[in-house]
Design a binder for these strands. Sequence first.
DNA 1: AAATTCTCCTGAAGGC
DNA 2: TGCCTTCAGGAGAATT
Length: 270
Amino acid sequence: MPELPEVETTRRGIAPWLAGRRLLGAVIRDGRLRWPVPADLNERLTGATVSTVDRRAKYLLLRTDRGTAIVHLGMTGSLRILPEPPTAGPHDHVDLLTESGVLRYNDPRRFGSVHWTESDPAGHVLLAGLGPEPLSPDFDGGYLHAVSRRRNVAIKVHLMNSRIVVGVGNIYASEALHRAGIHPLRSAGRVARPRMDLLAASITAVLEDAIRAGGTTIRDFYGGDGQPGWFAQSLRVYGRTGEACLSCGTPVKHVVMTGRATYYCPRCQR
DNA sequence: AAATTCTCCTGAAGGC
DNA sequence: TGCCTTCAGGAGAATT
């Protein structure tokens, strides 16, 4: 389940194989993703040269001199660089053929997507309304505090709102709140400024730690090099219901918030 | 307007 | 062992 660290790990894994390389074509084996893969993707990008592979929120941007492919991994999507000639398997939806191998998009649950735009991707409908990057200077406790005033929504749900801040999914929302000592059910508007400073710092820290570990592999995440992420071993509350809080020993609890499992320590988090 | 619920999908896991 | 049912969740759409 890719969140920001997993997408960033993927970006770092595939970028060296794509930047500066010419695209030889696209093979849409099964275009049924969250939105249909553009049928003319092959014509559009054949012959294009990749400039950079960037990330905005959980979207990967394959920028070329002809346009930009916008790729989202959804829940179970993955991008791998494979040597030629690759044999296609189940859920291998799209291949991008390059001079130096194949970039393969695989997605069993089909929650991901591939778009193509020939305008500034920042203005694309998928990206236009997004909040700041949590690893950018735009994001800090002052900002988080300001956008939380008079908001009754639970702070955990608030953090997962991409208009507030991007890239913080279910796993890292729980982890950041535990690090900051804030109860996930607390109203966003009732987190005081000093605790917002700590929360913003905790979000940044947990994401950076996870990127450093190559992401979190719960079930099905593998980076661009096929390696799993190791951050699962560093999770302090996520998936640890009944196990001892690593700070105080109290058994970790979980509640379901807007359909998502939410883990917290009832003693450390208020 | 803000907050909540619904929806897409399939593999894994749990129950009997 | 095997067939059920349930669960997981990113994020836009629909609803309250």
